[in-house]
């Protein structure tokens, strides 16, 4: 379980996020949506300990950002960018590099695990041997997701993970996320109505808060809700 308490994020002096209490459970695929500029990415980056925030992030019942170092936090509650960034080299170089970091010295690169995810996301194995700068946007996005999954975080925070994917590949991604959600909690920020509809818990970010929608939604309703909360 991942709980955020008295969670506030300020950008310059504006308060963008102000959440008193919210818990995410493993076993569910959460989707967060809302109008652009409302702070969805900011919220995810905050929970991923990549930007400054106030408050506490609990991980389980007792472990929180107060007693876990920030590097550990970032790995356990792990943020994945919408536009992935890589070091120069091949895809495989990039996957392996992660395990060379001092913090990950006790972990080993599991090539089979990487290939397993690649298969599920319809990525050819040859792609791992290509220079990353020659990959398409969609290929990079999936490679980046694989890189993040093989460190086996406890929660994964995906920022628009299907923005560069076609509808078929997006379906594969949603399927994969449902498969892993018991081991790795999944929180997704997305504009894709397909993604939102196929998630287990739909969360609307508005008025600096997370609002849980406890009713069924369809495409039109999602669009309407986002519009209503505009401004």
């Amino acid at each position: 379980m991942l709980t955020i308490k008295n969670f506030k994020i300020f950008i310059n002096t504006d308060k963008l996020i102000d959440i008193e209490h919210f818990s995410f459970q493993k076993g569910f695929l959460y989707s967060i949506f809302g109008r652009s500029g409302i702070g969805k990415s900011t919220l995810l980056k905050g929970i991923g300990s990549l930007i400054e925030y106030q408050g506490e992030i609990f991980f389980g019942d007792t472990i929180s950002n107060k007693n876990l170092n920030v590097r550990e936090m970032r790995k356990k509650i792990h943020y994945v960018r919408q536009e992935p960034r890589f070091l120069s080299g091949t895809g495989l170089d990039n996957l392996k590099y992660i395990f060379k970091l001092n913090e990950n010295r006790n972990m080993r690169f599991d090539e089979d695990l990487a290939y397993m995810f690649a298969d599920k996301l319809n990525i050819e194995r040859e792609l791992f041997y290509k220079d990353v700068k020659n990959l398409s946007g969609g290929e990079k996005q999936r490679l980046s997701l694989i890189r993040s999954l093989i460190i086996q975080p406890d929660f994964i925070l995906l920022d628009e993970p299907s923005s560069a994917l076609d509808i078929h590949t997006e379906e594969l991604l949603i399927k994969l996320l449902h498969e892993i959600k018991r081991e790795i909690g999944v929180i997704v920020v997305s504009h894709s109505t397909n993604f939102i509809i196929n998630s287990d818990k739909k969360l609307l970010l508005s008025d600096k808060k997370i609002n849980f929608l406890d009713y069924e939604v369809n495409e039109d309703l999602i669009k309407k809700i986002i519009e209503e909360h505009n401004g």
Binding site: G48, L50, Y79, L101, E103, N104
Partner: peptide, 22 residues
């Protein structure tokens, strides 16, 4: 120029020096 890459390395547990060593 490379703030996004540094942030990415951070998300994998890199320490300050590892994130900018390149």
């Amino acid at each position: 120029e490379n703030g996004d890459l540094i942030e990415t390395l951070f998300s994998f547990g890199a320490n300050n020096f590892e994130a900018v060593s390149e």
